[in-house]
Write a protein that binds this DNA or RNA. Structure first.
Length: 542
RNA sequence: GGCCCCAUCUUCUAACGGUUAGGAAAUCGGGUUUUCAUCCCGGCAAUAGGAGUUCGAUUCUCCUUGGGGUCACCA
């Protein structure tokens, strides 16, 4: 291609804008001054909808590796596809990162000197590198229409050859200068494509942080570098190379879907005279298909738990989520967690060699709740109250109002059986609050309908009830009530003559519990009654 | 279809080539708590299949099967 033609292409790409040279740009982004061993990690979500829990997982891993090594953690918004962009997504990303405690050192609205962290604001930089590639013969314009591309693919399918834009199938790779000029004259739109020098028959090697030594075919795809749209933004491939180079990324962690394009990214690095990145590919979190189809990637459509706003609304405590995710990343976390119950989960040191996430781990909400229950049980009372109230304020106004109406009573309610070495573990997420506490608040409780047996049991209980009694005496009283109502106090006796009794003390207590709370599983009855007060107890049982 | 990744209990996983294949979650059973939980103890449960290398294979090699990814002007 003649220089003159290249100049025309450049003029069209830049639309008269003054594009800095690569040297200029690189002088503005000097190498970061960091201690040796410090890692610069990043997570690059695209603002195309809600935030995926996998992004939080990747974010946590990258953030831990960065900050454990006194390095930097960056959040880069990959918004090069303006058509797919969804309004408000960036806010969602920022909120989700804030919610899950992923503090980035560089990111949207937080420039550490290596920004901007919106790719759409870095267009000129990508162009500078793209133009260099054009000059050095590593790029060329392609005027193919989508119809032509589709026809190409059809032919390849018919010929049973490997699909893709490469070699002889690269329509515009070897066009003459005249043909390019003609297309330019006709005003046809074009993309700038990479001119690969690789061969599918040859193999290249690289070391993956997680998967170890890899050997794959060389890239030979002439992928688009710069799109034909009005913004002239780059595709992911170019943006990744340029950004991670300028931002000083030391390790590129990404999900497995990027593995096949790693050969391309290595070739592109070489085309720009750069050292290829240190890549690490991990399997994305998946979920068990409800229709029995087996494991699959967590899908935004079918699985509400893929969306972090589900997690936030449900009110899973952040450190419990951290614990679960850390356990997914490093299986030795569980042992550490048990041995260090007094420490913050973020004191755990994540190790890369154990993060051999080879298979897609299944999201296990039950195991997650096992962690969150424990985390909540360990929470200081003040923090617990604050979280419950905050959740209720947002999601259960009646409960919130009832709680606020009598703070002293509410404090007692929320503190029930949370002290001591073995606190209750009834609450796995803040949205469990209504189920656990609503029954304490009169305005929210429907009077229980009692059958004759229940009525008899309740009145027997009340006859023997002494609100001022201590727990032991209270229990003696309950036993007396049970006996008078026809319940057996002795297990063996009950087992021997089950027909002689209405049931055991367990059954009697169960009736009282149900009448008092409407539930079969609650904290200790005496404690509940002490908190509720005599009037309320008598009202509910009569 | 080509290429690539992956394969241990139901789930998450551990095991320098030598272990009764370990732990955790779930589940089941027992115990403590004269109620509910907590807590403690125990049970059930796996190396996808087939060759090969080796004294010895979950571990290394190959094949088969199965799952996933990719081959877009999406990232």
């Amino acid at each position: 291609m003649k220089d003159e033609t290249k100049q025309r292409i450049i003029a069209l790409l830049t639309e008269g804008r003054d594009i800095s040279t690569r040297a200029d740009i690189e002088s503005r982004y000097p190498k970061r001054q960091l201690a040796s061993g410090a890692e610069v990690m990043r997570v690059p979500p695209s603002p195309t909808g809600f935030v995926h829990i996998g992004t939080i997982y990747a974010g946590l891993v990258n953030e831990r590796i960065a900050h454990q090594s006194d390095g930097m953690f960056l959040l880069r918004i990959e918004d090069t596809d303006k058509k797919r962009e969804v309004e408000g997504s960036v806010n969602g990303i920022k909120e989700a990162f804030a919610h899950f405690g992923l503090d980035y050192d560089g990111g949207p609205d937080k420039d550490d000197g290596y920004g901007p962290y919106y790719q759409s604001q870095r267009g000129d930089m990508y162009l500078a590198y793209a133009l260099e590639l054009l000059h050095t013969g590593w790029a060329y314009p392609c005027f193919a229409t989508s119809d032509e591309l589709a026809e190409n693919a059809k032919k390849q399918q018919a010929a049973k050859v490997r699909p893709g834009y490469y070699g002889q199938w690269a329509l515009w790779r070897d066009k003459s200068d005249e043909e390019v000029v003609a297309a330019l004259d006709a005003g046809r739109s074009f993309v700038l494509r990479f001119r690969s020098r690789g061969s599918h028959d040859k193999r290249i090697q690289f070391d993956d942080v997680f998967k170890g030594h890899m050997e794959v075919p060389e890239n030979d795809l002439d992928v688009p570098l710069i799109k034909s749209d009005e913004w002239r933004l780059p595709t992911y491939h170019l943006a990744h190379i340029v950004d991670d180079y300028l931002m000083g990324t030391t390790k590129v962690f990404r999900s497995d879907e990027w593995l096949p394009s790693t050969a391309l990214h290595i070739e592109m690095s070489q085309a720009l005279g750069l050292q290829p990145f240190n890549y690490g590919h991990f399997a994305p979190i998946s979920i068990l298909d409800k229709n029995g189809g087996g494991k699959r990637k967590l899908s935004k459509r079918k699985d509400p738990e893929a969306d972090v706003s589900f997690w936030i609304k449900a009110g899973y405590p952040v450190s419990g989520v951290h614990a679960y995710l850390l356990g997914l990343a490093n299986s030795n976390f569980e042992d550490w967690y048990r041995a260090n119950s007094d420490k913050s989960v973020l004191d755990f040191r994540l190790s890369l060699d154990k993060l051999a996430a080879s298979r897609a781990p299944l999201l296990d909400m039950t195991k997650l709740e096992n962690y969150t229950k424990d985390v909540i049980a360990r929470l200081p009372q003040g923090a617990f109250n604050k979280e419950i109230l905050a959740w209720a304020d947002l999601h259960d106004k009646p409960l919130f109002d009832a709680m606020m109406a009598d703070p002293e009573y509410t404090n007692k309610v929320l503190a029930i059986e949370r002290d001591g070495d073995n606190p209750r573990k009834d609450v796995a997420k803040w949205s469990d609050a209504p189920e656990q506490f609503t029954y304490f608040f009169d305005p929210l409780v429907e009077p229980a309908q009692k059958n004759d047996d229940e009525k008899a049991a309740c009145s027997a209980f009340l006859e023997n009830y002494d609100h001022a009694a201590d727990k032991d005496t209270w229990f003696e009283n309950m036993k007396a009530a049970a006996e008078s109502a026809g319940y057996c106090l002795d297990r063996k006796e009950l087992k021997a003559n089950p027909d002689k009794y209405r049931g055991g003390i367990v059954d009697f207590a169960g009736i009282i519990r149900l009448a008092l709370t409407g539930k079969t599983r609650t904290p200790d009855l005496w404690s509940i009654m002490q908190i509720m007060g005599e009037d309320r107890v008598r009202a509910r049982l009569s």
